[in-house]
Design a protein around this nucleic acid. Structure first.
Lengths: 341, 341
DNA sequence: CTGAAAGCGCTAACAT
DNA sequence: ATGTTAGCGCTTTCAG
């Protein structure tokens, strides 16, 4: 059994109040007593019991973080940043994978509340707006999902997915592409996926491209889904007719698509162009390097923690605060100017 | 302020003991009272306060997990598995990145102890044996690092790094390679790095290969380090003389090495072969697909949690328990038979 | 400047 | 079968 504040107090010959105040620096303690307390703590190897402290002050200094899948580098990058910044503010994080399971996501939220977290960061949540909207007592920040109006204590941090996707349409058109496939994410469940879909097809329409020229396939934001969807496309379409470009709005999915194309001896971008979304670290080192849209993980993570912590520390309500970040296009080698063909 | 067990008891017209027992199912509660308690809980939106519970029972059901870097897919895969299995046993995890900083790693351990975790999984720790060896009150499992003898409550889960690396020597020799570069990890700080180095160079020696034929470079287990080290090698050596193979004992590092080779218009494996270590998911999709050694993340994660939880739940001492996993070679396209040249 | 003591929300003897 | 209550380790008001 490890030493408690009582043991320290006794050994130092002072009251527990004094020890507590000495540790938290909340009131002056004379040098002499401080000295004795210090020695006593060292002698006993005393470690303050955060649980007892939390119970008393009703603050755990823990932020709950849910992500769909930590093994997806996009989320891993966000989590890494959250952890880093949270540490600077002396907060810890409790991490959960929802595995893209809505029920799991809800259980996790409850578990967080029970665990007494001071705030929650929900990355790319699958829950419906109504589910998210009911306030849960602690501030929550929703990351990487388009904001909605709410009176609840919820903030949003997100890149501009609509614009991000729309600019891809501009880019592809101006580079001479005239046949398109859009590998939609889970449009039914993930609002971001809709946003991107609308951005891309909407802009295409504005540019006067007929609907039939852009095939839309629904899948998941995963390597495997990208792989399979590309196979479907190639089964169905004769890629040699026209200048084809595939927009797979997740780098990991685009990577899968690229691999599928390779197995059919297709060259990217010679035979077919591929564009991703997220700009994860590795996209720059694929073969060919992936043209993509930056989804700024560092800022996403940083803003998210800052928002929750601000809400926690200053008792500010987040109610609908939004941070919308830029999502610029990153041009690399998986697309090129067709006029150079 | 959310409802407490007292509120529930009052509303249901029972004692707090009954509510507590009803929740934990530790003693029989009549159907009628159970019914009323259930209703009261729902009406109040009651969520048990885990912190208070932990304080009382001296168990948090939290496992602390430290990894060098969560954005490294190898560690992400391990963490994902740890989280998954821990969940099955109703344990939560508290995650920390040490960023390859020994001081941070030690702070984190202390922080875990203060936070009252029931056990710790330390993945690829940088601390010295002596630092790790002093028991800290809770069971700790050290993952992905060779075991050492200890009386402390420490268990080990690790792949056979020596053999894993040694078989690469066998493989390369039998495939006709005759010039080698070994991109060592941080040999000074990471025991695994030493293990692999010894495995590779040791076997080479056993096979009668002269020392001068294998260059050893020290670096880090990172993409950038692989990249830079390859540049150094190419600056120094004329790769066209002999059949060169590079062993970068971390896939991420091997990937970096591969990219550096490409920038010099070198073809892998035609001009130079590359072998990695870890077999992360993405290695199969590099160009060319990476020949590597399997470092079984799933098993590593799973065994680690199972070991800690066993120690926690059954009060068994781990003292030196070891789980050593196989590290088989995965042959892909970044190496080939030179006789076919 | 320091100490005594109440109480955070829960569990588990002990009592009935 | 259920209730009463002490106490987990800490913070903080109130008193001195």
């Amino acid at each position: 059994m490890s030493a408690t504040i009582k043991d320290v107090a006794k050994l130092a010959g002072v009251s527990t109040a004094t020890v507590s105040h000495f540790i938290t620096k909340k009131r002056y303690v004379s040098d002499e007593l401080g000295q004795r307390i210090d020695e006593a703590m060292k002698a006993l190897g005393y470690k303050p019991n955060t649980i007892a402290r939390s119970l008393k002050i009703k603050r755990s200094y823990i932020i709950g973080v849910v992500v769909p899948s930590i093994s997806n580098p996009f989320f891993a990058e966000i989590v890494e940043q959250i952890q880093k910044i949270a540490g600077k503010y002396a907060y810890r994080i409790m991490l959960y994978n929802s595995n893209n399971d809505v029920a799991a996501e809800k259980r996790i939220m409850d578990s967080f509340l029970s665990a007494g977290v001071d705030g929650i960061i929900d990355v790319a949540p699958l829950q419906t707006q109504a589910q998210l909207d009911k306030s849960c007592g602690v501030p929550v920040v929703i990351t990487d999902r388009p904001p909605f109006e709410t009176k609840a204590n919820i903030g949003f941090v997100c890149a501009d997915n609509y614009k991000g996707a729309a600019q891809v349409a501009d880019f592809l058109i101006s580079h001479g592409y005239d046949r398109f496939a859009y590998f939609a994410g889970p449009v039914d469940r993930v609002p971001n996926a809709r946003e991107r879909l609308n951005g891309f097809t909407g802009r295409l329409a504005e540019l006067g491209i007929e609907k039939e020229l852009c095939q839309v396939y629904c899948g998941e934001y995963s390597f495997d889904s990208g792989y399979e969807t590309m196979q479907k496309l190639l089964d169905k379409e004769d890629i040699t007719q026209g200048n084809w470009a595939v927009f797979a709005p997740s780098d990991i999915m685009a990577w899968g698509a690229m691999e599928a194309a390779k197995t059919q001896s297709l060259k990217v971008p010679r035979d077919i162009a591929i564009v991703g979304f997220d700009n994860i670290f590795y996209s720059n080192y694929l073969y060919p390097a992936l043209t993509t849209v930056e989804n700024p993980t560092k800022e996403l993570g940083q803003k998210s923690v800052e928002l929750v912590i601000q809400a926690i520390d200053k008792h500010e309500l987040l109610s609908g605060r939004k941070v919308i970040l830029d999502a610029p296009l990153i041009e690399r080698n998986s697309t090129f100017l067709h006029s150079q063909k």
